[in-house]
């Protein structure tokens, strides 16, 4: 009986403490009210203008059209979500999944789906095999592009510092004129501090990416299969004095879940095999460090897996620590298929 009167519900593991039917009903009622409110208000607004037109309201800036758009969105969002909620209420999760799968299998969507048809839930390796290597068959792309990160930090740094300098100039002028604004002065201090930190972070990122130099990883074949042996080729450029440089084959489970209003991601490393580790050595300009070796995929390895909120990811992870720069880590995803390579199937 307690679950019928409880107001707030909590997800415990994969179970909810309350009635799913009640939850669905509540959701449907919410959207129904939103839809009805939108229809009634929009109807009244338009109806009143049809019966007694007031042309001065139609000019921009008065708010009439904004009201129409807001009420129209109530009707669309409320109506659409109500239909979706009603359809969902009488349908099992399996039936919804079957319908969604049937829709996805239509030819119309085939090209939009990169996933390989023979291996459901195994991500496509299309983007991993379109770059030939210099020494081995494929050069793997890195997951983190420094350009995007640097651009984001640069934009933030510029916007923040321009704002900070503007506030600082105003505060200084007020002081000079003998009318100091204490609230503004106190506000400027953290602004300038954050601006200074952003500048430091930007310079640090630029130094890491220009100072450490690019890392390249090539592999002899792709996708990978459990129990099979592959060759790898690692190069690290730059002028570096390294405390250590390491490359490892890593498998991680990634789970995405909702906690309150936040979407959180948890990563659990379940396999790591160091393929190379070198300590205390130097790399000179123009002569990149090179390393070639072999790796054997574990025979009982789980294949790469990707669904809406869960994943099993395999990566070749290159990590290093130099005397001058902070620790750096670069990840090169690989795709592991289940079973045996195509040529070895019975």
């Amino acid at each position: 009986m307690a679950k019928w009167i409880r107001v707030w519900e909590k997800k415990r593991g994969d179970r909810r403490t309350g009635s799913r039917l009640l939850g669905d009903l509540g959701e449907a009622m919410f959207f129904a009210v939103m839809f009805l409110l939108g229809v009634a208000s929009l109807g009244y607004l338009i109806g009143s203008q049809v019966i007694e037109p007031t042309p001065e309201l139609y000019s921009l800036g008065v708010g009439f059209w904004l009201l129409v758009i807001v009420l129209g969105s109530f009707v669309l969002i409320g109506g659409g979500s109500l239909i979706f909620a009603l359809l969902r209420m009488g349908t099992s999760a399996e039936r919804r999944s079957a319908l969604a799968q049937r829709a996805a299998n239509l030819d119309l969507f085939t090209k939009a789906l990169p996933r390989e048809r023979g291996y459901p839930t195994v991500p496509s390796d299309e983007n991993l095999t379109n770059s030939p290597g210099v020494v081995l068959a494929f050069r793997l792309p890195s997951t983190q592009s420094p350009a995007w990160r640097l651009s984001a930090v640069l934009v933030f740094c510029v916007v923040w510092n321009v704002t900070s300098v503007g506030l600082l100039v105003i505060a200084v002028r007020l002081w000079q004129s003998g009318r100091p604004d204490w609230v503004l002065t106190v506000l400027v201090v953290p602004f300038v501090a954050i601006g200074a930190w952003a500048t430091y972070y930007l310079l640090r990122q630029m130094l890491i990416h220009t100072g450490v130099g690019p890392t390249h990883v090539e592999v002899s074949a792709h996708p990978f299969y459990p129990g099979e042996e592959y060759e790898f080729y690692l190069t690290q450029a730059g002028r570096l004095r390294l405390n250590f440089l390491q490359m490892a084959l890593v498998c991680e489970e990634v789970a995405t879940f909702q906690q309150g209003t936040d979407v959180r991601e948890e990563v659990c490393r379940v396999f790591e095999q160091v393929l190379y580790r070198g300590e205390d050595f130097s790399i000179d300009w123009g002569i990149p460090f090179e390393r070639r070796g072999h790796l054997i995929m574990p025979p009982d390895a789980m294949h790469s897996f990707e669904s809406g909120h869960n994943a099993v990811q395999w990566n070749l992870v290159v990590e290093g620590k130099t005397r001058a720069w902070p620790h750096f880590s670069r990840r090169f995803p690989i795709v592991v298929h289940p079973g045996q390579p195509p040529g070895e199937r019975l």
Binding site: D14, E94, R95, S97, A255, F257, S307, G308, H309, N310
Partner: peptide
């Protein structure tokens, strides 16, 4: 309804897909 399906368990939100479905 009968279905042959996989689903996920663990920390993340549940994902599922049916391999076979009849109603």
């Amino acid at each position: 309804e009968a279905s042959v399906m996989w689903f996920t368990e663990g920390k993340g939100e549940e994902d599922l897909a049916v391999q076979y479905f009849e109603r």
